[in-house]
């Protein structure tokens, strides 16, 4: 199967702090700075509270992805409110499994379990980045 193109990957915590971000092949006005991250988190926050509000059954339903003509944004939120986000080309399948894999097998292992990592700080672990990149390259077309 042909690998889908990955444009960006983000991790936010429950307070809206950006813990990690990476992007590839982006040719827009998105600067990927603090201001842009705040916008993205605000959008996800609103979308999630809206999704919950119109939910016909009371539960903790979250949205999983939305699609535009040029990309699809995938979101996986853990019960601990960490948000794992990917931007891919639009015709990509659901990526919750992949995002959960990154959370459980890479993020928890190399970030959360490192006693010297201060919670809510940006992630600088080389181990995390190298394991993450290896996994992403194996699953997606990541260029540039």
């Amino acid at each position: 199967m042909e690998k889908k193109t990955l444009y960006a990957f983000y991790v936010f915590d429950g307070r809206g702090a950006r813990l990690y971000s990476d992007n590839w092949n982006q040719k827009s006005g998105w600067r990927n700075d603090d201001e842009d991250h705040k916008l993205m988190y605000g959008m996800l926050f609103s979308l999630n509270s809206f999704v919950k509000k119109i939910n016909p059954k009371p539960s903790n339903a979250n949205f999983h992805h939305f699609t535009t003509s040029t990309y699809r944004l995938h979101c996986y939120e853990t019960p601990t409110r960490l948000k794992f986000i990917m931007l891919t080309e639009p015709n990509t399948d659901d990526l919750r499994e992949e995002l959960r894999f990154i959370y459980a097998n890479i993020f928890v292992e190399y970030v959360i379990k490192n006693p010297l990592y201060k919670l809510h700080d940006p992630v600088e672990s080389e181990q995390f980045v190298s394991h993450l990149h290896r996994y992403l390259k194996q699953k997606f077309a990541v260029e540039g």
Partner: peptide
Amino acid sequence: GLRLIDELIAKSGIGR
């Protein structure tokens, strides 16, 4: 506990 909870969720796969 702040950290251990993520390990619990990651290994057990439990939701909310």
